[in-house]
Simulated assay, not measured.
Amino acid sequence: MLERGQLHHRRSCRMPRTLSPDPRWLLLAVVVSAALTIAGGSGGPGPGWLPWVFKPLTTLLVIAYAATRAGDVPRRRRWVLAGLAWSLAGDVALLWPQSGFIFGLVSFLIAHLCYVAAFTATTRFGASPSAFATYAVVSAAILSQLWPHVPAGLRLPVLAYVVCLAAMAAQAAAWWWTCPPGSGRRGAGLAAVGGALFLASDTLLAFNKFAEPLPLASLWVLSTYWSAQWCIASALRPRAAG
């Protein structure tokens, strides 16, 4: 009788584990939701209301995925979730491309600062000067091409945003480059990929907005954007089995 009671207790303790969403299904949901957003975007084959539903939903699904990865350093997990929440605010703001642009820019700037805080949880800021030097050169090259097309009133906000974006990507790379071999290095590598993809996505977005329209802009901008967010969320370690 005691053994049967202990077995029932062990089973009841395991039951809540089945309530966590399967990451594979979350990834599939993100891909489908992102595809519907892109299909309804500018020039897409779908109806124009699709982004209003599926653009916020896609980021919410990434947040749900990040929330399941509860095995990481609490500070890193907290700041990654904060960065995703501010990204969601930016996504909603940019549904109004003109009137919501500044609020969206500020929201994503704060998101990048949150990611910087996350990536300094176990690695000091600027731990790899070469990573920061590399991203400084890349960002300066991009900005030099973009700068003549940016309206005068937006130049200061855009400059501040580029600095924060480059710092986030550089710190992610610094975390990876200085991380010793082990289980944490894989997460750091995913964060570094996410930072690079974020820079690529925002570069495409900026040239499409300020310079000249890009063919299939929604496809390239949003696919790299959500790939970046998924990689950053995947940098968090999942809860250990058992």
Results as ranks from 00 to 15, higher is better:
19 L>S: 11
212 E>A: 15
212 E>I: 00
136 A>S: 13
33 S>T: 14
224 T>P: 06
45 P>T: 11
123 T>K: 01
16 P>M: 09
27 L>R: 12
177 W>H: 14
48 G>M: 00
56 P>I: 07
146 L>S: 03
235 A>R: 04
164 C>N: 08
31 V>I: 15
53 V>A: 10
50 L>R: 02
125 F>G: 09
198 F>W: 05
211 A>N: 11
136 A>Q: 05
144 S>F: 12
88 L>P: 02
149 H>L: 00
66 A>R: 02
202 D>C: 05
50 L>C: 04
116 V>F: 08
241 A>W: 13
125 F>W: 14
162 V>S: 07
129 P>L: 03
1 M>P: 14
236 L>R: 09
222 L>S: 08
1 M>I: 13
169 A>K: 05
240 A>Y: 08
29 A>K: 00
48 G>S: 15
105 L>I: 00
81 L>T: 13
213 P>V: 06
25 W>P: 08
24 R>C: 03
149 H>D: 12
41 G>A: 12
171 Q>T: 11
190 L>Q: 13
65 Y>H: 11
146 L>F: 05
120 T>E: 04
164 C>Y: 06
240 A>D: 14
182 G>Y: 05
5 G>T: 14
198 F>R: 01
38 I>S: 04
120 T>A: 02
100 G>Q: 07
232 I>T: 06
221 V>C: 03
199 L>T: 15
207 F>D: 02
242 G>R: 07
159 L>M: 13
203 T>D: 00
73 V>T: 12
65 Y>M: 07
159 L>H: 09
35 A>E: 08
226 W>K: 01
178 T>P: 02
124 R>S: 13
45 P>C: 01
169 A>D: 07
82 A>Q: 04
69 R>S: 01
94 L>T: 08
42 S>E: 13
236 L>K: 04
198 F>V: 01
46 G>A: 02
155 R>L: 06
179 C>G: 08
152 A>R: 14
116 V>T: 04
27 L>C: 15
49 W>N: 10
177 W>R: 13
132 F>S: 01
58 T>G: 00
134 T>N: 04
153 G>I: 00
172 A>W: 00
179 C>Y: 03
147 W>A: 10
53 V>C: 01
225 Y>D: 05
9 H>Q: 13
78 R>D: 10
162 V>W: 01
140 A>Y: 09
82 A>T: 12
230 W>Y: 15
89 A>I: 12
